[in-house]
Each structure stands twice: as C-alpha cells, then as structure tokens.
Nucleic acid binder design. Sequence first.
DNA 1: TCTATAATTCGAAACATGTCGAACTATAGT
DNA 2: ACTATAGTTCGACATGTTTCGAATTATAGA
Lengths: 107, 107
Amino acid sequence: MSNYSIDERAQMFRALSNPHRLGLFHRLTTCCAPGTECSTAEASQFCVGELGEGMDIAPSTLSHHLKELHRAGLIEMQRRGKNVVCWVVPDTLNELAVFFTSGFTPE
Amino acid sequence: MSNYSIDERAQMFRALSNPHRLGLFHRLTTCCAPGTECSTAEASQFCVGELGEGMDIAPSTLSHHLKELHRAGLIEMQRRGKNVVCWVVPDTLNELAVFFTSGFTPE
DNA sequence: TCTATAATTCGAAACATGTCGAACTATAGT
DNA sequence: ACTATAGTTCGACATGTTTCGAATTATAGA
C-alpha cells in the first residue's frame, strides 16, 4: 500500500512546502472556482493564468512553481489552444492521505 | 475543520520535505521499533539518540532536524533524565490527513 | 567533585530555492 | 504575414537550508 520511497515522498512534501505552491495546489484540489457552483465531484481544471490570479507573482515564477508541482508528480499539465490546463493527479492525493492515516501500523 | 492557514501548513510540509526529517517522523508514527512487538495503538516514543540510529548524520544535525519538526508543531520533546524523548502530536497528524481527503469540497 | 553520556548551540562552508526581468516559443485571430 | 495573448526558459541575485566540527550545557553515577 505504500508505493513510494521516503525520498519520493519527501519530494512531494518539498513541492508543497512553499506557500505559493501550496496555494496553487489547494486551488486545484477544490472543485469550484470561488463564487461558482460545484458541478462535479472531481478535481477541477484551471489554466496557468487563472491559477496565478491574485497571487502577485511574476509569470515566470508561476511557471516555475507549476513545473515543480509537476516534477513531484502532484499535477498534470497539457496544452489546450493558447492555454495550458492543470489538474491534480488523484492517486497521488490518496497516497498522501494514506501516509498520515495508516502510520500507526508497522510496515 | 481546517484550523491552519496556508502558511502554517506549508511550514509543516517544509518540515517533512527533507528525507532525514521525514525518516525521523516516520519512525515516530510507527508504533513498534523494528523487530519488536506492537504493544499499544498509540504513537511511539523514542529518545533523540535512538531516532538517529542508522541514519549516519552528526548529532548536531540530528538535533537541528528534530528542532525543525518541533517548530512545525509536528512533534513534542521532553527531557527524561539524560535523554530527551520525542513523540508525534496526534492532532497534527489528523489535520494533515484531512487536508488531503477533504480537498474536494469548497471551503 | 570528577567523569562519562546525551543532547544542544554556534559559526562556517557548500549547496538549493525563490524571485525577477528580458528574451523566447506557441497559438489564435486578423 | 502581422499582432496579441499565454506560457516558458534563461541568467542573475538574494535568501534559506543542510551539514559538519568544536565548544557548551544537563544529567547520572562513581
């Protein structure tokens, strides 16, 4: 049930250790954009520009942070026309939850 | 249900972003020392020296890492004679799990 | 009180990260 | 082809992090 090594998991936590990156990730794990209705139970998709809105960071910095989240295996990214859309990898989200809930049993 | 700010949570993840620190934390969240029997369902206690065994890091480095885990609110530490014992704060462990499992509902 | 063990603090060196602006690539529309 | 919009890459700089060894503090036992 624990498919990741300590090093891989540390990489995931490293990706979430920056407030800006954690903010971006958090935006992707909530199903609705602020002020809109919740249409599905799945994780939402945002394009890069939308994700950075209200964060007051340069586009280059935003791009860097999303690349880090991607490198850690936390999000996927794909070009769609002029935009690049991002979404969370659900498996990874599960794996992380398991790490904290199943910690009390010996490996 | 979400009692921590983005910044506080980022601090927690930062503390877990180093493989050595994550290893130490993981050792504290498993109930048994390797090769011993599981006596209780609670998180285990280890003294600083035991925690560092087999990790090949200097005592000063070990001390630094545990201080970081403590600063992030992930572990407690208390002197017991010549030793200092460490244990995980259970609430925090829960909080972290919740972050990953309840992400799909709007705040 | 002296010694041994356990752990922390301090300062320094090497390395990693976060941030920006400027220059670049990709796409869509005119 | 030209232009505007969306993102990325690159180089540079400031700031943080990891690690160590040496010096220091705390405690227990002889």
